[in-house]
Design a protein around this nucleic acid. Structure first.
Lengths: 222, 222
DNA sequence: GGGCAATGTTCAGATCCGGTAAGGACTGGC
DNA sequence: GCCAGTCCTTACCGGATCTGAACATTGCCC
């Protein structure tokens, strides 16, 4: 899902290159030229807000935006006095950038606020399987499957990197202890239990002489 | 709970007034003068990181900090080229402030990142349960339930992230001491007391071999 | 196909884990 | 000191889980 950026800027000489540069980087950009339009625009992930708007006070727009959506607001303005910055930040802005600025920095700041907003991916999905390390729950076709701790840990290692063949040694050191020496048959037992419980034909593939891998395009079993 | 700020700065002429100003505003400030100390310091909510450190590369410290904690990192440095900013922001910094700067702006930026980190909620609600960390009161179906300090701390950890399976280790380190080694049965005792007092069937679920979790859709018990 | 090593399957005993109760230590108020 | 509340430890138990071994099967290589 592309990141949606709303540019609120009445100066076309700034709005146009901004739109162009952001779009080129893969953002979905919408541009409006007034505070009223900004408040009526579609949902956005990030709002670039110029404070010098023709109709409403910029800070008022900032407050209202924050009240009615969860979008990050980056204020972009020519006024750079400390008092202005403090006021904007305390009115809900997530960042404050003074014109003129480089596109590279703007995009880095967008990435920074987005990173803080979305605490990374919460769960993995491989075909009909979902694995959520946060809740330690596993579902197949929407039905929860009860896994034991070891089974879950093994599965998590595997689905975290679909398609990659993970060696027995790596699984043993990651799921069991840091350094493991003894028999490795215990791993097969748990993998067998996983295959039986998940019942997804071909999901966990054996890489002979090496380890296991989950197949991204696995089909539903019986 | 006060906000903990870690100041990483080797110039005492800057570190000292910073510490003083932040402390006066109610922050709990810890100051270190090297990257190594920064990585070994106690947990913090915000890290003010000077990039010109004597031992380690500042950006390396930034990456490592973000890898091992969830603290917000605000880079504070004299170097203000756009390339430096982009590099720092992409290495995990949440904000980038060029010296010299005003204390008011710094504090506004701290408030901004904290606001983005904590979705400004004053109390938690899970089904018929409400938990208010500010007043340390707990109610079930509107009736106040008297909890002991430990019980409250445990419950707060659990409801702060409903659905998440929180490990015994995490609970022990967050409610008890930073590093905990000994017997862990005390946790079970308190959880048992919580379950009995709250009397919400299925609210606190045991995640076998891992820890506990509160179930968002828990029903009212008898 | 034959030999061999790796893997799959099954199962019972060992081990681990969490619930619970009881008792003692500690603390702060009076 | 006494008391009530809180916290911690210990011990026991039932159940879930892990593991090692034995045997069956599969895949690789010649």
């Amino acid at each position: 899902m592309p990141v949606r950026v709303l540019v609120v800027e009445d100066d076309e000489g700034i709005a146009w290159p901004l739109r162009r540069g952001l779009a080129r980087s893969g953002y979905e950009v919408e541009t409006v030229a007034s505070g009223r339009e900004a408040l009526e625009a579609g949902p956005a992930d990030v709002v670039l807000l110029d404070l010098g708007l023709p109709d409403l006070d910029g800070l008022e727009v900032c407050r209202r935006l924050r009240a009615l959506s969860d979008a990050a607001v980056i204020v972009v303005t020519a006024r750079g006095e400390e008092g202005d910055r403090v006021a904007a930040l305390d009115d809900g802005a997530d960042d404050y950038l003074v014109k003129p600025f480089g596109l590279a920095e703007l995009e880095a700041r967008i990435r920074a606020v987005l990173r803080r907003m979305n605490p990374g991916r919460t769960h993995y999905t491989v075909g009909p399987l979902t694995v959520d390390p946060r809740t330690r729950r596993t579902t197949v076709r929407g039905e929860e499957v009860a896994l034991t701790p070891k089974e879950f840990d093994i599965l998590e290692c595997l689905v975290a990197d679909p398609g990659r063949a993970i060696s027995r040694q790596e699984l043993l050191t990651r799921v069991w202890d840091e350094n493991w020496y003894g028999p490795t048959r215990v791993l097969d037992v748990h993998v067998a239990a996983l295959r039986r419980k998940l019942a997804i034909e071909g999901l966990i593939e054996t890489v002979y002489g090496h380890g296991f891998r989950v197949v991204p395009g696995a089909e539903v079993g019986d």
